[in-house]
Amino acid sequence: MAITFEQVNFSYGAGTTLANPILHDINITIADHQVTAIIGQTGSGKSTLIQHLNGLLKPTTGQVIVDDLIVTNTTKEKQLTKLRAKVGMVFQFPENQLFANTVLEDVMYGPLNFGYKTDEAKQSAQSALKMVNVAENLWQKSPFELSGGQMRRVAMAGALASNPDIVVMDEPAAGLDPKGQAELLALVSNLKEAGKLVVFISHQMDHVVSVADQVIVMQDGHVAAQGTPADVFNRDIDWFKSVNLDLPRAGQFAEQLRANGVSLSRRPLTLAELATMINEEYEHE
């Protein structure tokens, strides 16, 4: 169930005088059963990239291969339906897309569209709601009566209800409070344990470090780097400035310590690592 991009270019309005090239020569492989984070500043092409994962956008040239399905510029809509059954997509602020009268009906909508019978759809919806921790007493309520955090989880359940092998999320933690963010990261880990391939976009490097196996860095529509968080976040600080990204907070703090004459033996990527390194430093004195 891996995903491969081969020489993918994408332009809006391709073939017209208004052609606006967004993605340039993307060659990436996203491994199965792993969590891959896509990072890059606003406008770097992250959202455009992930819209290729379920055929919302088709490459202008090149191909995207998801499992045994090949998507090119000429792929027909019918083929894309197969792809969409494999790929659950959670957009930015997905709570804006809730529409049904009850939470349960909203989550059942996806499975029903993919041809589930009513009782199957209900069962899948219920297990998806449990997975994202939406309490049972809310299932018959209108989604619009819920708090922002609850609405976000209901919308996620909607994408998970048809049990897709691939889950793609565009900034799933944006706007959530610390507890909601922690729950979201736990959900990502659970999805991975359940054998799914997870791709998510994030502006929060700390989230990337805590759950991602692989990181893809986008800049101006190009892949600027790809590797494990340890590889990517140990690059030179000037490189991060050049792609307009921050280090994880612990790394930023360590860089500032360095500028003030405290050199740590390596760059910490998490708070726990940073605290341990500082504590060790002090014990030596």
């Binding site: 708070l271 605290a275 014990e283």
Partner: peptide, 9 residues
């Protein structure tokens, strides 16, 4: 603050 909470000194 989170860092301070984890420091021994």
């Amino acid at each position: 603050g989170e860092l301070t909470a984890r420091l021994t000194v």
